[in-house]
Design a protein around this nucleic acid. Structure first.
Lengths: 201, 201
DNA sequence: CGTCGCATTGATATCGCTCAAATCCGGTGG
DNA sequence: CCACCGGATTTGAGCGATATCAATGCGACG
C-alpha cells in the first residue's frame, strides 16, 4: 500500500532477485547502490544497538519500496533481512535518479511515495509516544483501519507486531487478552477488530 | 538543518508571516493550502488524542520546512503552534507543485529534503523503541551529534525534550542527574555532552 | 519423533509515572 | 528596589504498568 509502483518502473529499471527467509539483503554501512521494491514477501529493516539489542525500523510489505534513502546517501542506514521468502525488484540508484530528473510525472509520483512513508513514520512516532500498551494497540487499529470499523490485518507474527509497538511480546499478548476480556477487541483469523472505545471522552 | 531552502524559493514563491508565541499556525483537519518554511523561532507540531493528551509529532527548527505533506494531501494532519515568536515563509502548495514539475533540479532538492525528514523520523522511532530513559538520551546524543564528541545543544526547554523522548519531565531530570553522577554526561550552558559510554559492548 | 519457534500464562522485579513540594529565574508592576 | 507571579527545574515517596525470567502447549518441518 505504501508505494504503488509507477507504471513501467519495475520492468524498465529493475532486475529481479529472490531471497529465502533469513537472508540478509543489505547491511548497514554498506555502500548504497540500489533502491528496492518488494514484489512478494516481507522484509524487516533493523538497526542494532550497542548491547546487541536490535530495533525494527520498518517492516516492509509487498508493494512497497524500501531503502529509498539510497538515492541521497552513500550508505545504508539499516540492515534488511527477509522475514519470509521474498522477491524484490532491485533499482539502480543512479538510473532512478536520472529518470526522476527527466520525467516530472514520475518525480511527483515518487515524491508522493516518500511523503506517504514520512506520514507513516510520524504516525508511528505518535503511537510510540503513548504511555500504555492498550492505547498503542488502539492507536494502531484506528490509524491503520481499512474497512468500515477499526481493524487491522496481522501481517507476520505477533512478536513482530510487539516490536513495532515498542512492547515485549508478553506484554502484547496480555494486553490483547485483557482487551478481549473487556470486550473492546475481537480476534478473528488474523484480524484485530476494535469493538468500542471505552472512555472516548 | 533539516531542510536547506533551495535558492530563490523562499523569495519567489513565499509570503512572509509572523506569529507570536502560542499562536496557532494551522489546525489539524483544516484544508491544507500551504507548505511552510521556518525562518526564525520554533514551531511545535502536535496531535491530540482522546484524553486531551497531546503528542509532539515534530519540533521544527529555524531553516526547516514543515507541513510538506500539504502537497499531497488535502488536510493538515496535525496542529502547528508557535513555541516562540516566529517568522515563517508561507508557500502556496499548488505553486510549489508546478515548480516541482517544471524544475528537475528543484524537484531533486525537494526530494532530498523530504528524504532527510524521513530519516530523522526513523531515527526517532528507533529512539522511542529503546526501553529505558538513559538509552534514549544516549541515542539522542549519538545520532544528533554535531562536533567531535557526542553532544546536543538544547533547543527550548527540557520539558519539551522530555516530550520528544517519550518521557515525563521528572524522569528526564532524574536520568540526566544520574548520568552526571555516573560521569557519563556533562551539562554546560545548554549543551549535553556525552563523556563515555559505559558497557559499549 | 525431535526440534524449533511462536503463542500463552504465571511470578516477580524494576523502572518510569503520578502526585507533591521546594527552589530558581525572568519578567512585571508597584 | 522589592514583592510577586508563572513557568521551568529539581527532588521525594509510592504505586503500578511493563520488563524479565520461567514454564507449557502447539504446529511446522525435517
Amino acid at each position: 500500500m505504501n508505494g504503488v509502483a509507477p507504471p513501467g518502473l519495475v520492468e524498465s529499471l529493475a532486475s529481479r532477485r529472490a531471497y529465502v527467509k533469513g537472508d540478509e539483503i543489505f547491511r548497514a554501512n554498506a555502500e548504497a547502490r540500489h533502491v528496492f521494491y518488494l514484489v512478494r514477501g516481507r522484509v524487516v529493516l533493523r538497526r542494532y544497538g550497542r548491547g546487541g539489542e536490535d530495533v525494527v525500523i520498518h517492516a516492509a510489505q509487498a508493494g512497497e519500496f524500501f531503502a529509498e534513502a539510497s538515492l541521497h546517501s552513500g550508505r545504508y542506514h539499516c540492515t534488511a533481512m527477509a522475514a519470509t521468502d521474498v522477491e524484490v525488484a532491485c533499482l539502480d540508484a543512479s538510473a532512478l535518479a536520472s529518470k526522476l530528473r527527466s520525467d516530472p510525472d514520475f518525480a511527483m509520483a515518487w515524491l508522493a511515495i516518500v511523503s506517504r512513508q514520512l506520514r507513516g513514520a510520524r504516525a508511528r512516532i505518535e503511537r510510540l509516544s503513548l504511555r500504555n500498551a492498550a492505547d498503542r494497540v488502539r492507536h494502531l487499529l484506528i490509524t491503520e483501519a481499512q474497512g468500515d470499523r477499526p481493524s487491522y490485518a496481522l501481517r507476520g507474527t505477533l512478536r513482530e507486531l510487539a516490536g513495532e509497538l515498542g512492547l515485549t511480546h508478553e506484554t502484547l499478548y496480555r494486553t490483547l487478552a485483557a482487551m478481549e476480556r473487556d470486550g473492546t477487541l475481537m480476534r478473528r483469523d488474523g484480524m484485530l477488530v476494535l469493538l468500542r472505545s471505552p472512555a472516548l471522552g
